[in-house]
Design a binder for these strands. Sequence first.
DNA 1: TTATGTGTTCCCAA
DNA 2: CTTGGGAACACATA
Length: 279
Amino acid sequence: MPELPEVETVRRGLHHLVSGYRIVQANDLHPRAVKSESLAPLSSLQGARITGTGRRGKFLWITLDRPLVLVAHLGMSGQFLIAQKDRPAAKHIRAHFALKKSLRKLDLVFNDQRTFGWLSVEEMSDGVPTSASHIARDPFDPDFDFQATVAKLAKRNVRIKSALLNQEIMSGVGNIYADEALWRAQVHPESVTSEMSAKKIAAVIESATQVMAEAIAQGGTSFDDLYIDVNGESGFFDQSLAAYGQEDEPCPRCGTLIKRIVISARSSHFCPRCQRKKK
DNA sequence: TTATGTGTTCCCAA
DNA sequence: CTTGGGAACACATA
């Protein structure tokens, strides 16, 4: 399931490959492919030219030469793929776009095994599509307010792991990068935010930003071919994971075996020696 | 057959 | 009204 680094990898790929192309044809191929709140069906985008891309947290959008955007959320398994002859056809295609730029033609598909992802046609409001208006800025947003985010976390009464997954406090972090950020900051995932020092909270945000920046540089994390970019390529950050998915493997910092616990129905991986609740 | 999964939203209780 | 926790959503794989 794509988190910010994977969504950003997809956005960059799309930006590079489809900017300037005109949507010749657009069709949804599954009843849940397009959000019910969508202002219009995908077919209404026929004739529009793609001018660029945008992202906040895990929400992604394609801008057009009209006052509407095509918004996408990849959910747990959504993919944008450029069809290529030498690649087997994707098995869960939910939407298809035929694109054209002078004599060049491209087929862009939205593929999604688990159908938690969606597309929708929306208006922009305050710099983001309406469906993302409740999503907090991510740490790569030029207007991200670091101190305000520390303060917001400090007054919550939740476990830090849950707070990191809350996209209304700070967006972009999912289960993988939450575990990695906490490992780097040496914070126990069950530490309660209101009991943490501002310095510790700041360290967690800094670690999250740093680990996501490194992951973007590696093209994201791919465990299997569920996460791949628009060209079908996997990212390499899985080789750099210190905690996530490393149950019973030695902590890269101290050698203690990484432990797995469940916090609000999600797996959390941490080092029981260097991530203590009291610190 | 059962457990698990990179996410979000909705419902309920405090 | 606000906040936090858990279930639900759907499908594939181990």
